[in-house]
């Protein structure tokens, strides 16, 4: 199974389970959670099911393309289900089976992982799912996002696509993953790893980054004042990434770190609050869609039948 087949297969599976296939968001970000399809849609009472691939940037994880497992740019396959169905775990496992992983022949463990994103003012409880010891997915029941309680609870599944591909293709080096039939991951991304590692660790202009952080932060707050929530949230994502770039240069001390994170979170909270207000003003239109999400009720019925 090539990398692209893997993604196609996940798309197929989750589309079948009522997920909207949305697309990556065109701003640098550290995780698929930042995509408005998760961060904003987690808020408020409206149901939401979506799946998408998200390119993620973690500047400090760069290894100049020399480490077979660490990348400063990689992909997450993100699934969000709200409200969280009672059979989320089973659905997830079924998706692995759909990828051809024989569940009975592998050691699959749900290991406690309390997820927290201080920059997004978000936290949740769940697991990292390990396949034969390798973490392949983050599985989280969101409790709070942007400082607001998540109700109904959204469940977020974040697949580490490269890791799963390495496992399925039995390769030990991420750059050896077959992307399509003839092209490997390294052909597509190795040069980027080398160049961006150099940029992130050595070449970035820290003063420019600090200045940009401040300017973008101000822009975000200014836009919120004008009720331009979505553009403001763009700037929230941007400053989060700039913070990561500054951090990669080791230019932020521990005390300052907390302060910068609090600044990103401050903007994220404002966006969250303003977004909910805007949806509310529209009467939370997706509430009308609720019955069209088929899986949860069906499974609940079966459970009840079995218990009775």
């Amino acid at each position: 199974m090539t990398f692209q087949q893997l993604i196609l297969s996940l798309h197929q599976f989750w589309a079948r389970h009522g997920c909207l296939l949305v697309h990556p968001y065109d701003t640098e970000k550290g995780a698929g959670t930042f995509n408005p399809a998760t961060f904003l849609r987690a808020l408020g009472p409206e149901p939401w099911r979506a799946a998408y691939v998200e390119p993620c940037r973690r500047p400090t994880d760069g290894r100049y393309g020399e480490n077979p497992n660490r990348l400063q740019h990689y992909f997450q396959y993100q699934v969000v289900l709200k409200p969280a169905p009672a059979n989320s775990q089973d659905l997830y496992l079924e998706s692995l089976a759909h990828l051809g992983i024989d569940l009975a022949q592998h050691d699959i463990q749900f290991v406690q992982d309390d997820w927290e994103s201080p920059t997004l003012g978000a936290w949740g409880l769940g697991w990292e799912v390990r396949l034969d010891g390798m973490e392949i997915t983050q599985f989280t029941y969101f409790q709070e996002v942007g400082g607001l309680e998540v109700d109904p609870v959204m469940v977020e599944l974040t697949y580490g696509v490269e890791r799963i591909a390495m496992y399925i293709q039995e390769v030990d080096n991420v750059f050896e993953i077959r992307w399509g039939d003839a092209i490997r991951y390294g052909e597509l991304y190795h040069d980027a790893e080398v160049q961006f590692s150099t940029y992130n660790f050595d070449a970035s202009d820290v003063d420019m980054l600090f200045a940009t952080f401040t300017a973008f932060e101000a822009e975000g707050h200014r836009l919120i004042e004008r009720d331009l929530v979505l553009p403001a949230y763009d700037y929230c994502m941007k400053i989060s990434h700039i913070f990561n770039l500054i951090d990669a240069r080791g230019a932020i001390s521990v005390a300052e770190r907390t302060e910068y994170i609090a600044r990103v979170r401050g903007l994220a909270r404002k966006c969250a609050e303003a977004y909910v207000k805007q949806r509310e003003a529209k009467g939370f239109p997706l509430l009308a869609l609720q019955p069209s999400h088929p899986t949860a009720p069906k499974v609940r019925k079966r459970r009840k039948a079995a218990v009775a």
Partner: peptide
């Protein structure tokens, strides 16, 4: 490693665990 399986293919699982540890140690 203590696994949660009664599989017949322990070799496959073992290889998986070895690969994970190798990546950790490499780091």
């Amino acid at each position: 490693a203590v696994t949660n399986v009664k599989s017949t293919k322990l070799d496959l699982i073992r290889k998986g665990h070895e690969r994970v540890l190798a990546a950790r140690l490499n780091d």
